[in-house]
């Protein structure tokens, strides 16, 4: 029988306590807590649609156990932007038509945020490296790249190192 234990997560800027079993994934915990923006795609750590940021790094919530988030900072898509104040990437995604079915987009937004928070003006190689775990089956990634390129220019205030 699985033991339930209390853990504490700094979730979207708020300290919250949860009772979890050892086997519960961070994804399951988030979704049962009403944070459904983090998507369930493969539960295998392959597709990236469940990407959240934990202690500054993009992680797959589906293969992260909830207990791993104990006393860590976790940020989900719900903390990024609102209708009246979308993040630059969200705005660019909309305007560059980077969103088709949209199922993968929250994960991509989180991966890009983690990257640009650490490396505001990445090289092309760094972009490829840091988005290699987010599958999109709709767009062919071109419009997502358009949105990303525009976001780098806007948020870094520099000419992107990566030329499209």
């Amino acid at each position: 029988m699985s033991v339930e234990k209390a853990i504490r997560i700094q979730l979207n800027g708020e300290s919250r306590e949860f009772n979890v079993t050892a086997g519960e994934s961070l994804l399951a915990l988030l979704r049962r807590s009403g944070l459904t923006g983090t998507k369930r795609g493969c539960e295998d750590g392959a597709c990236g649609s469940c990407t959240v940021i934990m202690d500054g790094a993009a992680v797959n919530a589906c293969i992260t156990f909830a207990f791993q988030a104990h006393e860590r900072e976790v940020w989900t898509i719900e903390s990024i932007g609102e209708y009246d104040d979308p993040s630059p990437l969200q705005k660019a995604m909309v305007e560059e038509a980077g969103v088709q079915c949209g199922f993968c987009i929250p994960g991509i937004v989180m991966s890009v945020k983690a990257l640009l928070d650490e490396i505001p003006n990445p090289t092309h190689e760094q972009i490829l490296e840091n988005l290699d775990g987010n599958y999109c089956r709709c767009t062919g990634y071109e419009k997502i790249e358009d949105a990303l390129h525009r976001t780098i220019a806007e948020t870094s205030g520099e000419e992107p190192q990566w030329t499209r």
Binding site: P86, Q90, V94, E95, V99, G102, V109
Partner: peptide
Amino acid sequence: DKIDSMQLALG
């Protein structure tokens, strides 16, 4: 702009 895209980008 695709009419549902902001809804989806916001999760």
